[in-house]
Design a protein around this nucleic acid. Structure first.
Lengths: 197, 197
DNA sequence: CTTAAGATAGACAGATCTGTCTGATACCGT
DNA sequence: ACGGTATCAGACAGATCTGTCTATCTTAAG
């Protein structure tokens, strides 16, 4: 009746502490600048314990990104099962982007930031990033299709651009100047259909 | 009649070689992963010479970004003095973004990539990035004003989002799928004015 | 010619980082 | 009660990184 061994591992408190500490440090300071020593010290975990749960640092980075991915997926899935209007979900997503972008400690997108430090597209970390981005694009496409967009694939690609732009801009420019423009931008993209050239 | 000492320094061939090598390596592999040793080895420059021209590695990073900034500025300035229609310049800029985004070795925006590795907004590297982004925004705003946009400030902010989104997407997704959508996105933003809520 | 500046090779210090290993302790299910 | 698993503390190896320093060589201006 107990959970299998792999499950034990996943829910180990030490592992949990490492993951939480790593998430905070990685996001705030970057992947290469934060060393294992600092993570385990702050998490209060022995080095052997860390390497018992993660075969290497890259695997911790992967786990950090994967958890963030699952977190976002769960939040969106909750909205979709709540049977909210697809267009309302889109508005809510972009409203949320603006809000968190202007919140304290915001430091851009964990995935694009990670990509900047892992150039090799074949690297496992990059594969996780690619997975996340495929999911995002598919999510936009499906919502747009439900909302009756005439070309969901194309509009979803534009929404990805908008999303990335908001996140980058909130980090590098004044997020409060950006915030009131987001809704406008979204509406231009959603309602401004392009006449065939 | 000779150039002043500081000018000598700037145009030193060794310095030039270091800067070129650093630019290639930094862009392709990241800032923290590329060490001084590798740069000077590949540039064929002695360590003492390097530290004669740059007080520290961060200063090299700054110089690398600053040079990219000046390069872009010069290219744009050339277009503007050629008295091309402002809207045509905007179209050309975004066309260019799509083209380079799909070219071999593309690895995203040097500035946003650098920001991911330098979290502290007060750091000189971040200041250079901020300067570049202010210039970009101002450029968009002025072009839009010339082109008769009813709210150049606001539309410029949206164009910044679009720009960042294209660059990120070209790096992390399929750039060839993105390319044919760019013009559409740009036109939706430029022509789709939002009715006052 | 003299002198100052640019350049070279490479050793060196000091810090840091990843990953391994030892040895001991606590806990938990069977 | 036993055996596996998680955990701890910390030493250790090996690599790497930044920045300094010595000692020598070339070059060009005055």
């Amino acid at each position: 009746m107990t959970a299998p061994a792999s499950e034990h591992r996943r829910q180990s408190p030490a592992r949990r502490r490492v993951l939480d500490t790593a998430a905070a440090l990685f996001y705030a300071e970057g992947l290469h600048t934060v060393g294992i020593d600092r993570i385990i010290a702050q998490a209060g975990v022995a080095k052997a314990t860390f390497y018992h749960h993660f075969p290497a640092k890259d695997e911790l980075v992967r786990a950090y990104l994967d958890e963030e991915y699952q977190r976002q997926r769960a939040a969106i899935e909750a909205m979709r099962t709540a049977s909210i209007e697809p267009r309302q979900i889109l508005l809510a997503i972009f409203e949320y982007l603006g809000k968190t972008g202007a919140s304290a400690g915001f430091r851009g997108c964990p995935f694009t930031n990670a990509a900047a430090e892992y150039p090799d597209p074949a690297h496992p970390v990059r594969r996780t990033i690619a997975e996340y981005r495929r999911w995002s694009h598919t999510l936009f496409r499906d919502l747009l299709a439900d909302a009756g967009d005439p070309d969901p694939e194309r509009t979803a690609t534009i929404l990805m651009m908008l999303r990335d732009g908001i996140v980058v801009g909130s980090d590098l420019d004044d997020p409060n100047a950006l915030r009131p423009v987001i809704r406008d931008a979204l509406i231009r993209v959603l309602d401004g259909q392009t006449p065939p050239t």
